[in-house]
């Protein structure tokens, strides 16, 4: 059986909110290392990979591999009933028909309990190769969100060029063009404001802004976002969570010119 207790419902609320517009029905794969999710969007352009390590829960118990096939719209409806600060416990039997969610208020004696019917989801599982990326950029997640939103007003796609000069986000549209360039930057007082660029070779790739803006819904999960790029491979956008847990998005580059 599965029993996983989260100190704050907020974490799961934010994760589900960040991915629910990209993917609809997903398997939450539970085993003794934690709860993982991998799903592609309908167009097979982007892939979400979430890992909530067992250390992110206290306690965490999962004796066998259990796949919880959940419709994220249903999960959102139920999670709306949880206060951000509630303690959230997920429970399921070994061959479950439902997943049970319990929300406990730390301040009052209120306990809410919900069951969500599970679905049988036959999901493709893709192997993601370990990649030595040519460029890795860590930057404030709010800054990345702002850049994507600003450039989407002009164009549907953005080129991300990384060189030793810095990283340049550029777009061209019907009304004109725009770009934002960031250089490495260290803020001793506010490390969340740091921009760190780790480059082994220059990279230039073009991506759909619609997807990037969608990924940025995860911004509230982490002050920093990491972008990993290599020529002609998908972009990795990573939001690191506590206890080595993470929410990652992969986006296939645009091809041709």
């Amino acid at each position: 059986m599965l029993e996983a207790r989260l100190e704050q419902a907020n974490l799961l609320k934010k994760v589900v909110d960040a991915i629910k517009d990209l993917v609809q029905d997903c398997n939450f794969d539970c085993n003794d290392s934690g709860i993982a999710l991998q799903a592609m969007d309908n167009s097979h352009v982007a892939l979400v990979s979430m890992m909530l390590k067992s250390e992110s829960f206290s306690p965490f118990r999962c004796d066998r591999n259990i796949a919880l096939g959940i419709n994220l719209t249903s999960l959102t409806k139920v999670l709306r009933a949880a206060q951000n600060e509630d303690i959230l416990t997920l429970k399921a039997e070994d061959a479950p028909d439902v997943v049970n969610l319990v929300f406990e208020s730390a301040e009052s004696d209120r306990i809410s309990e919900y069951d969500i019917k599970l679905m049988d989801i036959d999901q493709e599982h893709l192997g993601i190769p370990e990649t030595e990326y040519a460029a890795t950029i860590s930057m404030p997640s709010a800054e990345f969100q702002r850049i994507c939103r600003d450039l989407m007003a002009l164009s549907e796609s953005v080129s991300i060029e990384c060189s030793k000069e810095g990283v340049k986000f550029a777009c061209q549209g019907d009304i004109g063009s725009g770009s934002v360039t960031l250089r490495s930057h260290t803020n001793v007082d506010k490390p969340e404001m740091n921009v760190e660029i780790d480059l082994t070779e220059p990279v230039s790739l073009t991506f759909s802004l619609k997807y990037l803006v969608g990924f940025c819904k995860a911004s509230s999960l982490s002050g920093q976002v990491k972008l990993c790029l290599s020529n002609e491979v998908p972009l990795l956008v990573e939001y690191a969570l506590a206890n080595n847990s993470y929410l990652r998005f992969y986006l296939a580059p645009k091809i041709g010119d």
Binding site: M40, V45, H125, L126, P129, V233, P234, A252, K254
Partner: peptide, 14 residues
């Protein structure tokens, strides 16, 4: 025009 690649062409089935 720029085409959109598929994520499946980059990752293998596991």
């Amino acid at each position: 025009p720029i085409g959109q690649g598929s994520i499946k062409s980059f990752f293998t089935h596991s």
